[in-house]
């Protein structure tokens, strides 16, 4: 219910800055909803993405494009017909959906088809077949490991797309003429010192999440995002140039591709050792150890690509934002 209120507020508000903040809250709310629905892994991710990365990127873009949206009234457009048409469309789609839900199995019932068919094996056998307690990780990395390879490639594609859109000036050392170095949070000594302690902790936590994914919530994706968040914090405090000296974009680019390779070659290796693509059971003499090994390696690949991709996207955006400030 809170979600609906937030969403309506987002629809009404004209100040885009507020809208972004509200959508951050929206992300956090949906994350807590996911916890209530037992989806801890998803909640973890949604909190990192919906309340972290997404508003962050939005804010950086707002820095470039301006804060307020223009109301339709200012644009002098006869919108009545359009509005009625849109309302009809909404009602039609919404009505169809409500019609569709009538025959749906009741919420939460344990004998709904979704809980009965494929699911049973995941729950009852995955601890033995894969040997790890977190079923989400089992399904993610092994049963449906190929989807996850696809997911890694989606991030890779997006990073490439963002790179392609912002020309690769990113890779040439930027000019010293940027005066933004002095402003903002970089002057806050307290912040600097606190974050100096925090950043290593964040990075450490990322590694913990990375390797803990088999037992509790977590895994490559969450770890990648947290790692990226650590670096992003560093960037915000010490400036883009400094951060890019520490982690070179060209290295990131290679890492980003490298993560995909790790994942892909796991598949190829299992193919060469006689199994099907991404069949980890053949990686070691004991299938369960093989599964362990396979999941460990591919999660590493996921983590590397996600972290590198996210940082790369962030660098590209903040580079844009800074050069915008430099011009204005």
């Amino acid at each position: 219910m809170l979600l609906v209120i937030t969403a309506i507020a987002i629809a009404r508000v004209v100040d885009l800055f507020a809208a972004v903040m509200l959508s951050g809250i929206y992300g956090l709310l949906s994350a807590s909803f996911f916890v209530a629905m037992d989806a801890v892994d998803v909640a973890f991710t949604e909190a990192a993405v919906g309340a972290g990365i997404f508003p962050l990127l939005m804010l950086m873009v707002l820095g470039v494009t301006g804060r307020y949206e223009k109301l339709e009234a200012n644009l002098k457009k006869p919108a009545v017909v359009k509005k009625v048409a849109m309302l009809m469309l909404m009602l039609l789609t919404g009505g169809l959906l409500i019609f569709g839900t009538i025959d749906m199995p009741a919420f939460g019932s344990a004998d709904a088809p979704a809980q009965q068919h494929v699911n049973i094996r995941y729950i009852e056998q995955s601890p033995e077949e894969i040997g790890i307690p977190n079923m989400v990780t089992s399904v993610l990395a092994s049963y449906r490991g190929y989807d996850t390879l696809g997911e890694v490639l989606v991030i890779f594609t997006a990073a490439m797309g963002v790179l392609a859109l912002f020309s690769s000036q990113l890779f040439s050392p930027s000019k010293p003429s940027m005066q933004v170095e002095q402003g903002g949070m970089r002057d806050h000594h307290v912040l600097r010192i606190v974050s100096k302690i925090l950043i290593p902790l964040i990075l450490l936590f990322a590694f913990y999440v990375q390797f803990h994914g088999e037992y509790g919530p977590g895994g490559g994706f969450q770890a990648g995002v947290i790692f990226a968040a650590g670096i992003i914090l560093y960037t915000m405090l010490y400036g883009l140039n400094k951060a890019m000296e520490v982690i070179k974009p060209s290295v990131l680019r290679i890492l980003c591709a490298f993560g995909v390779f790790i994942y892909g070659s796991t598949g190829v290796v299992s193919m060469l050792s006689g199994g099907n693509f991404l069949d980890y059971s053949v990686l070691a003499s004991d299938p369960i150890i093989g599964q362990h090994l396979g999941i460990l390696v591919i999660e590493l690949g996921v983590g590397i690509t996600i972290a590198a991709g996210m940082i790369l996207i962030f660098f590209a955006f903040s580079h844009q934002a800074e050069s915008q400030l430099g011009e204005g």
């Binding site: 490991g145 099907n276 991404l278 069949d279 059971s281």
Partner: peptide, 8 residues
């Protein structure tokens, strides 16, 4: 893929 039978 992954050596798991179809619906799984």
């Amino acid at each position: 893929l992954g050596g798991w039978d179809a619906p799984w």
